[in-house]
């Protein structure tokens, strides 16, 4: 883990340093103008969040069924990072919505469900912290259920009519926009990997410390 941390750090820093340049050079969207540029950070933060959510869910399942403590440590790291990126999406979303729809919070299906997935994983962190002995298993169940809830999130989007841009907006981006967009997605995914690596390292050190204490006794 330590080995990939430094290269990841360099790549991520370079990408985030260059991202504003690419976004500034991207063409203006015809009706929304400047405010549409939030899109380059808003959508990638959700990409990063869902990557972390699925990592957390899968690792939790491995922990629960194979009883591997290392999977649990990766799950905590991914869970915290998921909440962080979700928060980023929930902050950038209303900023954009206020300008283009005139309201901060449109209560449409996708926005509500994004909030719900975020809440599930805030719940995951609360359970980890406050549920007392055995909280790692409780949290793992929460993460697995949260992961399986995501398709229901997606289904409800298609059922309800919504003012949120449809998922089909990404493949049909006008010229000049896909470049910066996918660059930002890559930057966010690399940031996500970087944060998870750092957090996992901390968790590993904690486990090593606990093992040392137990050896002393």
């Amino acid at each position: 883990m330590k080995k990939i941390f430094v290269p990841l750090l360099i790549v991520t820093t370079a990408m985030f340093a260059y991202a504003p340049v690419m976004i500034a050079n991207a063409p203006y969207e015809s009706t929304m103008g400047l405010v549409q540029k939030i899109f380059y950070f808003h959508v990638p933060s959700w990409f990063a969040m869902f990557t972390a959510v699925f990592l957390c869910g899968i690792e939790s399942a491995i922990f629960l069924f194979r009883k591997k403590p290392s999977a649990d440590r990766l799950a905590v790291a991914a869970g915290e990072v998921a909440v962080l990126f979700g928060l980023m999406g929930l902050v950038t979303g209303p900023l954009w919505g206020r300008k283009s729809w005139g309201i901060w919070w449109p209560w449409d299906a996708r926005v509500t469900m994004a909030l719900l997935v975020e809440l599930t994983f805030v719940g995951y962190l609360l359970v980890r912290k406050f549920a007392g002995p055995g909280s790692d298993k409780l949290a793992a169940a929460m993460a697995i259920f949260g992961m399986f809830n995501v398709p229901f999130v997606y289904m409800s989007v298609n059922i309800w009519r919504t003012i949120h841009p449809k998922t089909s907006v990404v493949p049909t981006l006008p010229g000049g926009m896909p470049g910066p967009f996918w660059f930002c997605v890559a930057a966010f995914l690399s940031l996500c990997a970087l944060l998870i690596t750092a957090r996992l390292h901390l968790e590993n050190q904690r486990a090593a410390l606990d093992a040392l204490y137990l050896d002393e006794e």
Partner: peptide, 14 residues
Amino acid sequence: SRTRDIMLPILLYP
């Protein structure tokens, strides 16, 4: 769990 009263809604509602 010691904190089950508060944890049940936290787990269940989302």
